[in-house]
Simulated scan of single mutants.
Amino acid sequence: MRRNRFCCGHSASCEFDSVSDEIIETWFDQPLLFTIAARHVRGRLVRLGPTLNTIIAAHNYPPVAEKLLGEALVLTVLLGSTLKDESGQMTLQAQTGGGPIELLVCDYRGGELRGYLKFDAERLAAVGPDPTLFALFGEGFLAITFDQATTDERYQGIVPLEGASIGEAAEHYFEQSEQISSLIRLAARHDHEAGCVAGGLLLQHLPEGEVGRDRLHVRHDTPEWDHARTVAATLKPEELTDPAHSLETLAWRLFHEDEVRVEPGVIVSRGCRCSTDYFAGVLAQFPETERVDMADDSGRIVVDCAFCSRIFPIPLGEISAPN
């Protein structure tokens, strides 16, 4: 069998073929980062399983909403894993322009992932089992925000929710806001054994500042990118969500003609940051008169966390004013 270079971050250098087990393989809830230097391409692959099921278990989502949230959470991990600041946060928000999905919010911070959907159940049921992005959101918009904690900088791009999927809308974001040509593939399905499984691929042409590449808007001859994109576009949804194949196997199937450097990303876990102490600290920032107005007849402020679908009743006496 032909052998090619496939280098991983687990050792200084390694070589394996499609049947080799020389490297640790990545399966669920951990992105695989890779670069193809000869093509001036970087990418990420991820497949969510246990973490995804933990997130959606707090809600009673219908199948259409579950699939949408699964794909959005995968997209959030793919984009969040590009943060060089490990304490930074990436937030994805999609808001309706008249569709049954009123709001979709996901965020990623240092491997912690959370997300939720707000929707009109009756109208969502009417769009059928395989609705278009327009049927879900109408003329909505997608906002992608990167918060760099160490530098206190924020970058945000807002684009219309256009295309066949939320992944295509994110491709438009990179084209318009970052001038980076990108390919995004997302898939989600329900597996009888693994529960809800969602997977995704992000492939990008390296921008200016990385191995000396020029911004794409000043380049028209990009055969390396055209080749990589064409190959990556052959990836099937069922391959992204198939628990039988590792992410390294998918990368090998796609790019075995080239030398590919792979590195495991940060392990992903459910990361809702809600707690009584946290909410009490937030409420302490409000003037006392406003806190009194928020309280119910029993003297408690009731906080509903949409991410984890839990209720936090906080007595006014347990909220201390900030020093």
Rank of each mutant, 00 (worst) to 15 (best):
E71C: 01
E71D: 05
D107Y: 12
L206Y: 01
F119M: 14
Q30A: 06
E171H: 00
L216D: 15
V211Q: 06
I166V: 12
T230M: 01
Q204A: 06
G212N: 05
A244Y: 02
E290N: 02
A228D: 01
A198M: 04
D242N: 11
P160M: 03
S298A: 06
V231Y: 01
R123L: 13
T54Y: 05
A38N: 13
G212E: 03
E25T: 14
I314M: 07
L206D: 09
F28H: 10
M90L: 08
E193C: 11
R2I: 07
E238N: 02
A121K: 14
D214M: 08
A37T: 14
T91E: 13
E210K: 14
D130F: 15
G195N: 05
Q176I: 11
D221H: 14
T35Q: 12
G212F: 08
E259T: 13
F286D: 07
L283V: 07
D293R: 15
H10N: 10
K67A: 05
R261D: 13
L68G: 10
A170F: 12
N323W: 10
R185C: 08
F28G: 09
A37Y: 14
L92N: 13
F137H: 06
G271M: 09
G88W: 01
V292M: 14
G128W: 15
R42H: 13
E238I: 00
E175T: 02
P322A: 11
Y61V: 14
L104Q: 00
F6W: 09
T241E: 04
T151L: 09
